[in-house]
Design a protein around this nucleic acid. Structure first.
Lengths: 336, 336
DNA sequence: TGTTAGCACTCAGCACTGGCGAGTGCTAAC
DNA sequence: GTTAGCACTCGCCAGTGCTGAGTGCTAACA
């Protein structure tokens, strides 16, 4: 497709531009990379590469910058995936170890770790309760008319909610309902639970069926989103360090997208769950991310639940390093 | 302190500047507010006000803008606290109603609501488990060597964690430990629990005491921060709409502060918990918030737990409206 | 045929300029 | 005490010319 020298030139431009964020001229390449040819020759190659759509020129008398297509070629052609240095790997391993110990804060800490290591914005999606099943329901009375309702899944996920007993619903009614659920619904998948109507079950009690229905719905909704469906951002400010976003308008558009967690969720989870998938510039469906690249990696917990870790940066992104890092992190997380 | 006309002039400038974000000249005031005097007179008053430190002049031939002190005077002097219009109140009431129904998502939704109503950035701090006591501990086996540990407080707060049984610790040991805790520690305050060492209790079992200790610590830490200590931001992008922050450097400094949840927590909780407290510009301890004002209101749940809702904006902030709104919102939240 | 040196050309960025308009402070008259 | 008039200040803006980086083209060379 591209002869060896064109490739060399393209790669040189991509690499230099990733570092400097400034258009690269022919002389610069000739000096920094020893290709053994003069700037004039490189100019010819650059003109060809531009015609082929791999490079672009911000204005007539400027150097070249890679186009989306140029980055894509670069990413696809990174033949051997780069590996982290031993030092970096050690750092990640140590920090990740202490994060994985406690379960609660995991997502926050993970997002923070990834963003601090990459200097980009990170997005972490909690593990999706894939095929989780109901283990047990529990009612814990707090006082005469308040009780904690709790649902436990076989994955260990728990949702709880305080219910204030409405008129006409006694505590033992609630306990009976709980027994009923445990006898009949243990082992039901979360997906089925979602579709279920509890008013019918609860209806055997004189009143308060609606309140119970509401509480159950809320619990189940909580379960499916308590950890999974949960979007956590890390280092959102990092995006501001990039010179391409010193324009407030662009920045605002991006931040607005990041604020929309449902949108982010769809964006990240739509990535193919191969090792690390990269979407560059306009490949992102979202208009505001036209100048961004998103690298997404998937982790898979022992329980079969999957989640995602993404890094969002400018199209001028350190692809190699970030991909290596994400692969390593997801590998470690998956092993836990 | 200030004669009536000086006050009028000062208020006119504050109000106009809040709206326009541009220095206000004497002619503008004479036209927009009918003070019955000519621009020249107003100029004299303005010169006096500047000398007194209530106004400042960005440059010689510009109008005046309020200083921190000017805002402070304005806020303190807002004699009768403004009330929301019936329409606004209705909107808040309706939206808040649906938020308060479910407990889980409350903080997120609340932050979103407040920021969308004010067009500033909002900060919500979850209810602090003030004097909560341990109601019950529970162990729910998932399979041969995994179990969910759960602590329930009398406020209805729940923390849970999956424990993988280490070598030498049997499930019934864990259940026995749980019984032991329930018999001896029910009713213990969260504060005391925090200081407690469980290794001693767990030590009666041959092994795994350390793992249990670790899990308990993590649970208790989770309890005290699961809801309380939780900082949720809403509409962080709103701050970018303010013309005073189109300078990226300032913006970045502010966002960096907002990213540091511990810092935000300290900042917000250090406010006196009177109705709504306002700290203006340099009154904020944090350097980066030199150009911001923070309005904080406190809510108090029936269980005695307290939390905070804050709004962060430029010093040129719609104090009256935001204060009224926060007072109303916290009142509604407190009643639930 | 591919490579290279030389040269004219382009264009963003920067510093400088002068005009404009908003707004002030001062003075003198009311 | 208030006001009109006026000179003065200064940020903003558009226009101008210069500089330097980088290109494309052409002609010469291996």
């Amino acid at each position: 497709m591209l002869d060896a020298r064109k490739r060399q030139v393209l790669f040189a431009i991509v690499q230099d531009y990733i570092q400097t964020a400034e258009p690269i001229g022919s002389r610069t390449i000739a000096k920094r990379h020893s290709l053994g040819v003069s700037p004039a020759t490189i100019r010819n190659e650059m003109a060809d590469l531009e015609e082929l759509g791999f490079l672009a020129q911000p204005h007539t008398s400027a150097g070249r910058i890679p186009s989306d297509r140029g980055y894509r070629f670069y990413v696809d052609a990174m033949e051997v995936l780069p590996v982290l240095t031993a030092v970096e790997a050690e750092i990640v391993k140590r920090q990740l170890g202490s994060i994985l110990r406690g379960q609660q804060m995991m997502l926050d800490a993970l997002a923070r770790l990834v963003s601090s290591l990459t200097n980009y914005t990170s997005i972490v999606i909690g593990p999706q309760p894939h095929q989780a099943r109901l283990k047990l329901m529990q009612v814990i009375p707090l006082d005469e008319n308040r009780a904690v309702l709790m649902l436990v899944l076989d994955t260990g996920m728990v949702a709880n909610e305080v219910l204030t007993l409405p008129q006409g619903l006694a505590m033992y009614d609630l306990l009976a309902f709980c027994n009923y659920v445990n006898l009949n619904l243990a082992g039901t998948s979360l997906r089925k639970l979602k579709a279920m109507h509890f008013e019918a079950y609860a209806g055997q009690f004189h009143a308060g069926a609606q309140a119970v229905e509401q509480a159950m719905d809320s619990l189940i909704a909580g379960l499916s989103r308590s950890e999974g469906d949960r979007v956590v951002l890390g280092g959102a400010t990092n995006i501001m360090n990039q010179p391409e976003f010193r324009d407030i308008a662009k920045l605002r558009a991006i931040m607005r997208v990041l604020d929309e967690h449902e949108l982010v969720l769809r964006l990240v989870t739509s990535a193919p769950s191969t090792s690390a998938s990269v979407s560059i510039g306009a490949e992102n469906a979202i208009e505001a991310l036209r100048d961004c690249s998103l690298i997404t990696a998937t982790y898979r917990l022992s329980g079969g639940q999957t989640g995602h870790i993404s890094v969002l940066g400018p199209t001028r992104m350190e692809y190699a390093r970030v991909i290596a890092l994400l692969n390593y992190v997801t590998k470690l997380v998956s092993e836990t």
